[in-house]
Simulated scan of single mutants.
Amino acid sequence: MRSFLLSLTKLIIGIALALVLLSLAGVATARYFMSRLADLPEKPLYENDAGLTSPEATAESASTASTATITSTAAPEADPPAEELPPNSYKALVVQPIGLVLREGPGLNYTQLGGVENNEEVIVLSTSDDQQWLQVRLPRNGQEGWVKAGNTRQIETDSEAENALN
Rank of each mutant, 00 (worst) to 15 (best):
A59R: 05
A62S: 10
L8N: 09
I13C: 12
S3A: 13
T69C: 06
D49Q: 10
E104Y: 01
D39V: 15
N151T: 15
E84M: 08
L5P: 00
N118T: 11
P80Y: 08
D49G: 03
G99K: 03
T53Y: 05
L125V: 09
N119W: 07
Q135F: 00
E56K: 10
E121D: 07
D129P: 04
P76T: 08
T29H: 10
V116M: 06
A92H: 01
S7E: 09
E83N: 06
E117S: 14
E83K: 12
D39M: 10
E117T: 08
P106G: 08
T127N: 10
Q131R: 12
G99S: 10
W133F: 03
L24G: 13
T71D: 13
Y90L: 08
L138V: 07
A50G: 03
F33C: 05
R137N: 07
Q135A: 07
L134F: 02
I12T: 14
A65Q: 13
L165E: 11
N163W: 03
R153S: 09
N119Q: 15
L21R: 09
E56M: 09
A38W: 03
P139I: 01
V116A: 12
K148W: 00
D39W: 02
R140Y: 01
T71N: 15
A164E: 09
G51C: 03
G99Y: 02
A28F: 04
